[in-house]
């Protein structure tokens, strides 16, 4: 964008948007092979469309040459920022780190591997009109197994009906956030970053944008991972499991009380009490079952309370690198030539 590099820059389409500052956040993890080409492509699109933009790349503890590859772009591409995390924290914390650092009026989180980056201007335009946000969804759940799809349907139904979690379905991780929405999102200083849950909770104007990713989205990789996230979302989104368990314990206690009365009455009015082993063990079994369920759920929430109250950082930024577009050798020689 500097005049010094204008010569190498492809011609701009006439209508550049100069009023909106756009930040694009992308998380990188072991993508050395094609990251340069993808970042270049992204940079070209943004450069064509916007007067003011930045690309915030978050390196989530890559072990290959990803960081070197993107750092090599710094001298030739302005408006690039690279954050490196101190280790691999996972996608959600890495996105949170990027959102925290981004300075744009609209911040778009993309996955360079699967999201259609040419649609960024469309998303930005959708979000610019208001103070809201746009969430990308993939109703077809590209590339997922039947088990995962059924699991997802069941999960959404349960979450909606039982837990009352108002959630955007089939999200891909692609989001565009206006500054007010981002501000509200960052203020929810919880450990987990789940925009599909928090954005409806925040309640600013919210749109969805359905598309087909070019591959299977990373956020939903693997059944176990999905289950893990499902639990996380339920625990983050509601106190419902705790409530259910509380009611069940009240019920169990009531049954217990009736049973006690029953035992007392029997003892009073029956002379020969040689009662069955069955009832005792049934009752024992039922009670222990209850107990463990209660413990499990409590454990989950206690764990949550602990992490929240410790206020450990969700991510740790180790370094930040910024574009330093160097004065081109030719141009420097020009200056030299003038003196003779």
């Amino acid at each position: 964008m500097t005049s010094l590099t204008d010569s190498q820059i492809p011609a701009r389409s006439g209508a550049r948007n100069s009023s909106t500052f756009v930040s694009v956040v992308a998380v990188l993890r072991d993508v050395a092979a094609d990251v340069q080409a993808k970042v270049r492509q992204l940079w070209e699109i943004l450069h064509r469309e916007y007067d003011n933009f930045e690309i915030v790349l978050v390196d989530d503890g890559s072990r290959d040459r990803t960081l070197e590859q993107v750092k090599a772009l710094l001298p030739t591409h302005d408006c690039l920022r690279i954050l490196t995390l101190s280790r691999a924290f996972g996608r959600e914390p890495a996105v949170a780190a990027g959102l925290d650092a981004a300075i744009g009026d609209v911040v778009v989180v993309v996955d360079l591997d699967t999201d259609p980056i040419d649609s960024i201007p469309e998303l930005v335009a959708m979000c610019c009109n208001g103070s809201g946000s746009v969430v990308g969804t993939d109703p077809t759940r590209t590339g997922e197994s039947a088990v995962q799809r059924i699991g997802a349907t069941v999960f959404y139904w349960l979450a909606q009906r039982l837990a009352g979690i108002d959630m955007i379905r089939h999200t891909t991780g692609l989001v565009a956030l206006s500054r007010p929405a981002l501000g509200a999102l960052l203020r929810i200083r919880e450990q987990a970053y789940h925009p599909q849950v928090f954005l409806p909770y925040i309640g600013l104007e919210l749109k969805t944008w359905a598309y087909r990713p070019t591959g299977r989205i990373k956020a939903n990789r693997g059944l176990f991972h999905s289950l893990d996230r499902a639990i996380d979302i339920v625990v983050t989104g509601s106190l419902w499991p705790l409530r259910i368990v509380s009611w069940a314990s009240v019920l169990a206690a009531l049954v217990n009380a009736i049973y006690l009365i029953y035992v007392v009455l029997i003892a009073l009015f029956k002379s020969h009490v040689a009662e069955g082993w069955t009832t005792t063990s049934l009752q024992n079994g039922a009670m222990f079952f209850m107990l463990f369920v209660v413990l499990a759920v409590l454990g989950e929430y206690v764990g949550r309370v602990l992490t929240e109250s410790r206020r450990r950082p969700t991510f740790v930024v180790r370094d930040e690198y910024n574009s330093s577009v160097v004065v081109q050798a030719e141009q420097r020689r020009n200056v030299v030539n003038e003196s003779r």
Binding site: T2, L4, R81, E320, N322, S324, V325, V326, V327
Partner: peptide, 9 residues
């Protein structure tokens, strides 16, 4: 600190 310095050599 981030935007005041541009090119450096």
């Amino acid at each position: 600190v981030r935007y005041t310095p541009r090119a450096a050599w």
